[in-house]
Amino acid sequence: MSSTELPSAPAASALPKVATVRVAEGERLRSVGLPGITLTVRARPPAREGLAPALYVHGLGGSSQNWSALMQQLEGEVDGEAVDLPGFGDSPPPDDGDYSITAHARAVIRYLDASDRGPVHLFGNSLGGAVTTRVAAVRPDLVRTLTLVSPALPEIRVQRTAVPTGLLAVPGVTALFTRLTRGWTAEQRVRGVMHLCYGDPGRATPEGFRNAVEEMERRLQLPYFWDAMTRSARGLVNAYTLGGQHALWRQAERVLAPTLLIYGGRDQLVGYRMSRKAAHSFRDSRLLTLPDAGHVAMMEYPEVVARAFRELLVETGQSQAVNPRERADVAGDGEAASENPGS
């Protein structure tokens, strides 16, 4: 594994010259070369030495920036890193053009094996939830706990609001959408994404909105932006059709790690009703439901998600709180937020 620090956050060398990637205060980026892929990894130094490692995996169309708020919340509990999946964020496309769930999971596994950071506290949102479910099922040795925020696991009845995203997998639809939206500004696109992904778009701060617009402008300059979106959407749809041991729900049942499931009541992409199925499929699960949250609870309610994760650590005996009083405070903070469905 080769690793290159990106102190001023330029685009990776394999990318065309576009605007730089935004890095929050206290974060750093580095480019990691692995067989067949190059990954950009966002890291936030832990509050103290010796904390257990964590890895965050974003959803379709997202990037490691989606986790910045939660990473900051949890810097006292874990040594956190967030990865840009191949073709997203600041990571260039994979050499083989494979954007399947299996390929994304392989990328995560390759990074964890090469970095020797496992086992980690593994987080996944949406597409990243499907990816990390597969990682936890096939490589339990790499996972301490699993936290899934609106995981994109197969649904029999998909919400109408999620249909347009699924249609990206249909050949020709992306080209048509690109033509129809050619005149849209980056600001218009970001507002559309926020209305789709947030339970309350008003929870986005003015600074957060500006950052999202800058990131959208940057990514629209990438020649493979829509290809990565289309192929990843197709990979997700294909994963929904798999049966046998490769079926995502079957793999959920194989996950051994303690699992925290987080679902938003206003999620327009992953059905809120799927929360109960998930709670009964993951053998060692606890469920946090947020009625006012949308698809990205870790961005809308990072404090609540962090509190639930701390409770998971206490419950599973993995908390590294500094003193007994802090440990008790963590447990007390999370009592009203989550429920254990008798997993």
Rank of each mutant, 00 (worst) to 15 (best):
V193T: 11
S68N: 14
Q318N: 13
D329A: 12
S338I: 00
A105P: 02
A186C: 00
V213K: 12
G244C: 12
P119T: 02
H58G: 14
S2Y: 06
G26S: 04
W67V: 12
A43Y: 07
A331L: 02
R310K: 10
G87I: 06
E315P: 13
G61L: 01
G235N: 15
T230C: 10
C197G: 02
S232T: 15
T147S: 14
M298S: 03
T161L: 06
A12Q: 04
P119I: 07
L29S: 03
T147H: 00
L148P: 01
A228T: 14
S150C: 14
L313M: 14
G61N: 13
V255G: 02
V138D: 07
A105D: 08
A252T: 08
L222R: 06
L290T: 11
Q268W: 08
P94V: 06
D116H: 00
L176N: 04
E77Q: 15
G265N: 15
P223Y: 10
G183L: 03
K17F: 00
G208I: 03
E207I: 00
D96T: 11
E253G: 13
R139Q: 09
D95V: 10
I156A: 15
A337M: 10
R42C: 04
C197N: 15
G124N: 04
V330Y: 15
A54T: 09
N125E: 14
P93I: 14
G243F: 01
G235H: 11
E81R: 09
T181F: 12
G50N: 08
V78E: 10
G244Y: 13
G334H: 02
T145Q: 09
W226P: 09
Y198N: 00
A212Y: 04
R210D: 14
M229Y: 10
G50T: 13
L29W: 03
G294H: 11
S100G: 07
L29M: 05
G264W: 10
W67K: 11
G59W: 14
A278T: 04
Y224H: 13
E215C: 09
V18L: 05
G244H: 14
E339L: 11
L70R: 07
E335K: 15
D90Q: 04
D96R: 08
G235K: 09
G192E: 04
R160C: 12
L39W: 04
H280N: 08
S115T: 03
E315Q: 15
L127V: 03
V131W: 06
N66P: 12
V296G: 06
L29V: 04
L127M: 15
N238A: 13
G97V: 01
G97H: 08
A228G: 11
